[in-house]
Amino acid sequence: MVDAALAVLDETGIEGLTVRAVAERLGVKAPALYWHVRDKQALVDEMGTRVWSGIAAEAAAVPRTGWREVCAGYAWAARRGLLAHRDGARVFSGTYLTDAEVLRQQEGTLAWLGERGFTAEAATDAFAVLTAFVVGHCIEEQARLQAEHDGYTLARRAERVGADEHPLVAASGRHMFAGDGGTRFDALLRVVLDGIAGLRSERR
């Protein structure tokens, strides 16, 4: 069921994701799926749990050479997981995790960070900031790809804002959209990590 739902999402986007569409892909009637999920949100929760489980597993495999590397590894894993599916960031942010094992996997990382100057609260805040950054950035990345598909370009942006009268806005646009999404993500992630450094209670 989850595989079919992810396939529907990848083909149609969030607007086309319905219990009926998933049922049709499985070759059954929609009421048959309601034996397994009570509504569309419950289906999305199952899909989100699958995606975040994969992200957690990938993040757990990141070599623990330093706290910055661990946090960055999580961020990159989350980006890959969310971008792997059409509208992934919009669909899977804030979903209810139906498998508690995804949460239990955090125990080792939280303990490890605790040995490196992060209280449990600080480590929690660090990952909350990272998650918010990744989700927001991925939403922007996927929206940008759609805009480019629709013919929206940097030149059109400059024309709309009036680049001659607003040179700083035009320059800001050139900087914001320079390079690919990964390059921009890496640069901003470094800024986020610099901020997270301030959460440490001691330097180790």
Rank of each mutant, 00 (worst) to 15 (best):
K40P: 06
W67V: 11
A72H: 08
A128D: 15
V37K: 04
D164V: 00
R38P: 00
V19E: 08
R86N: 06
Q41G: 01
R64Q: 08
S172Y: 15
D3W: 03
L188N: 04
G181W: 00
A59C: 08
W52L: 12
G173I: 05
E165L: 09
G16A: 03
V102P: 12
V37A: 04
D150V: 07
H36F: 14
E15P: 06
A197S: 15
V51M: 00
G94W: 04
A126R: 07
M176K: 15
W67H: 11
R50I: 06
R20V: 05
L97M: 15
A7R: 10
A143I: 04
A132W: 11
G81T: 01
R157V: 06
A171S: 10
E141D: 10
A60N: 08
M47S: 01
P167K: 00
D87S: 00
G94T: 01
R157E: 12
F127Y: 11
G108Y: 03
Y34T: 12
A143L: 11
D164R: 00
V102H: 10
Q142W: 02
L83N: 13
T18R: 07
I55S: 07
Q106D: 14
Q106C: 10
M176W: 10
H149R: 15
D186G: 07
G114R: 09
A155P: 05
P167F: 00
I14M: 05
A4K: 08
K29P: 03
T119R: 02
D99S: 09
G136T: 01
G88L: 09
V8P: 06
L6C: 03
E141K: 02
E11R: 14
P31H: 05
L6M: 07
